[in-house]
């Protein structure tokens, strides 16, 4: 492996600064002791982190977002696993079209999905409900779940299942004892990626959220639309810290390149 040249490393350094600067500034500003946006030149203060607790709507939105992410990604993975197995191992009419359809929420602008769900949910009378949020998030996160389960399913040697069958295992036993354990890494990482994407989704959700059911990113977005103050920086800093912790955990567990690369299309 040849080394990178000094100019290349300078370029790389600038790039890293570019990527991290906006996240760092949020975290730094969150610690300001002042009542307005500024760097904490008088030393760090936790006053704005404490202030979050005076705004129960952020806490409630956070809790709703967690529930929404857990529910929608669980249902998405339950739909994705059988579909991925079918796509990975059978050649059947409509297979290509089906795969494109299941991956389409990646390519359809989320604004369009938001509008479509708003219209649809209004027509069937579930607009502004948590059920509506879950249904719409299932659609948005299925591609992530499907892609990782699909990659895991392609890797299975079908003869391992044949071996189990020859030893007397029935269809459900083969799935429970052999197939599922073999694709488990894909299922777990697919679920996680789906949950993260559900948790972060804002563009589509902003259309279908109602005052009663608002996710954290939407609550933050609406807040920023009105004004930008250290409070929102503190909320964002919490989010960034949580994501960083999750990221390190994921990297340890699965290896980030396994999660994201080789499945190029995002």
């Amino acid at each position: 492996m040849r080394r990178n040249s000094p100019p290349a490393l300078i370029f790389h350094g600038l790039f890293v600064v570019f990527m991290l600067a906006p996240l760092l500034i949020v975290c730094v500003v969150a610690f300001t002791p002042e009542g307005y946006l500024s760097l904490p030149t008088r030393g760090p203060s936790l006053r704005w982190f404490k202030a979050i607790f005076d705004y129960p709507e952020f806490i409630r939105a956070f809790r709703d977002s967690l529930w929404l992410a857990a529910l929608s990604s669980t249902i998405a993975i339950m739909l994705a696993v059988p579909a991925a197995l079918a796509i990975a191992r059978y050649r059947f009419p409509g297979r290509e079209a089906m795969t494109t359809l299941f991956m389409s929420p990646l390519m359809v602008p989320h604004v369009v999905l938001g509008i479509a769900f708003l219209r649809f949910f209004t027509q069937i009378g579930i607009s502004g409900t948590f059920v509506g949020l879950v249904l719409s998030h299932i659609i948005v996160v299925i591609p992530f779940a499907l892609r990782l389960v699909l990659a895991a399913s392609y890797g299975i040697d079908r003869r391992i299942e044949h071996a189990a069958i020859s030893l007397g295992a029935g269809t459900s036993t083969v799935f429970r004892r052999v197939t599922l354990p073999l694709i488990l890494p894909g299922v777990v990482s697919g679920w996680l990626l789906a949950a993260i994407n559900s948790f972060d989704e804002v563009t589509m959700t902003v259309f279908i959220a109602s005052p009663a059911t608002v996710t954290l990113p939407v609550r933050m977005f609406l807040y920023i639309q009105d004004n930008i103050d250290p409070l929102i920086a503190a909320v964002s800093a919490c989010l960034i810290a949580m994501t960083a912790a999750l990221l390190f955990a994921l990297d340890r567990l699965f290896g980030l390149d396994r999660l994201f690369v080789g499945s190029g299309k995002g």
Binding site: D157, R159, I160, H162, A163, A164, S166, V178, P181
Partner: peptide
Amino acid sequence: IVFQSYALFPH
């Protein structure tokens, strides 16, 4: 049956 790839259960 003994398979060419052995097809052992890796888990």
